[in-house]
Amino acid sequence: MALFGALCVGLNALGFTNRSLRTQVSHLLGVPTTSYTVNQMSYDLARLRTKGLIRRRPGTNTYDLTAQGQRIAIFCIKVHDRLLAPLIVADQPPAPPDLQRALATIDRDVESYTNRARLGTAA
């Protein structure tokens, strides 16, 4: 999520480099830049490039998001902020009762499905 968040921050005409994106990702993860290494960032950039989410500018070390990359990065951030984050805290007291009931229903259905499929709990 931090990588997609950093890509959303990088939505500009200037593009981004390994160093600038690594700084953003580290900041969003809340860790020192040294914790997210250059090699990890290079690996992530290579994966993003092979998936067609970013492209490298010819003759430079600068990258740009593709149109598909922009759509996917924004979609993932929206899903996290609007769906996953509220569900994570849904069982805590400040959550609205209807959200707590919905989460309990989902839990019961998943439990029922795994019992019917004879899937045990993970070790």
Rank of each mutant, 00 (worst) to 15 (best):
A90Y: 09
I72N: 03
Y63K: 02
D91H: 08
I74R: 12
A13D: 13
R57F: 07
A85T: 15
P93H: 02
L87Q: 04
A102K: 09
Q68S: 11
D98A: 13
N39E: 13
L48W: 09
D91Y: 03
D64Q: 10
S42I: 12
A90D: 11
F16P: 02
M41A: 06
P32I: 07
T66F: 09
G30R: 05
Y63F: 07
I74V: 15
I54W: 08
P93F: 01
S35W: 11
D107P: 00
L29F: 01
P93D: 07
M41K: 06
A90L: 09
P97H: 12
G10Y: 06
I106M: 12
L99S: 10
L103V: 11
Q40D: 10
N18V: 04
V25R: 00
G10H: 12
I77N: 03
Q92T: 15
A73G: 00
L103D: 05
A104N: 09
S26Y: 08
V38L: 08
R57A: 10
V31C: 14
H27C: 08
V89M: 07
P93M: 03
T37R: 11
S35E: 15
A67Y: 08
G15A: 00
V79Y: 01
A73S: 11
Q24A: 10
T62F: 02
L28Y: 10
V25W: 00
V38W: 05
L45I: 13
L11Q: 12
L99M: 15
D64K: 03
T23C: 08
R57M: 13
A90S: 15
N39A: 11
Q70W: 04
G59Y: 12
R101A: 14
P96G: 05
G15W: 00
T34A: 15
L65V: 12
Q100Y: 02
A85D: 04
S26T: 14
R19W: 01
R49A: 09
V25C: 01
H80L: 11
D81S: 04
L28T: 11
Y43A: 13
N61A: 11
N18D: 08
R55C: 09
D109T: 05
P93A: 04
